[in-house]
């Protein structure tokens, strides 16, 4: 018998935020930080326009046809992620990045952890894709 087909769908919402940060390991000397992180270690920070792609997966609700209302997904991302990051300093102002190196990799993992607990049980988080610049991005699949 043919295996029954699932209706698994992936839905992506794109959001953006602007933030300052630096790459600096306080356990190292300034020289070592500059050697490893180059100009990203600049003491007085630099910044980026981050582009965030949040992808969820699941089966569309038969009554609405939606996996999750994209507007609701946007509101969740805004409340639990963007309000805590946008126009802020990632090293200084963000509770969930305290004590963590502010790399794009770690930020993607932290965004996953922030978001996953607030999604309805009918959907799963699939991927966090985070662009630091138009040519540098990371993906995290949990």
């Amino acid at each position: 018998m043919r295996k029954s087909r699932t209706n698994m769908v992936y839905l992506t919402r794109i959001e953006h935020f602007n933030a300052a940060h630096k790459l600096f390991n306080p356990a190292w000397s300034r020289e070592k930080n500059e050697e490893i992180f180059g100009k990203c270690a600049n003491e007085n920070w630099h910044g980026h326009n981050y582009e965030l792609y949040v992808t969820i997966k699941g089966e569309p609700d038969p009554e609405t046809g939606f996996l999750l209302d994209a507007k609701k997904l946007s509101k969740l991302i805004n409340s639990f992620v963007l309000d805590k990051l946008d126009h802020l300093n990632l090293n200084e102002d963000v509770d969930f990045m305290k004590g963590v190196m502010c790399s794009t990799e770690n930020l993607a993992v932290a965004i996953w952890n922030q978001l996953t607990k607030h999604l309805p049980a009918t959907v799963q988080l699939h991927c966090i894709k985070l662009y630091e610049t138009s040519r540098i991005f990371v993906e995290y699949y949990g």
Partner: peptide
């Protein structure tokens, strides 16, 4: 200046 005034700065590409 709203959130652009954040004392700890923010940033752009």
């Amino acid at each position: 200046f709203g959130k652009c005034n954040n004392p700890h700065y923010h940033g752009h590409n």
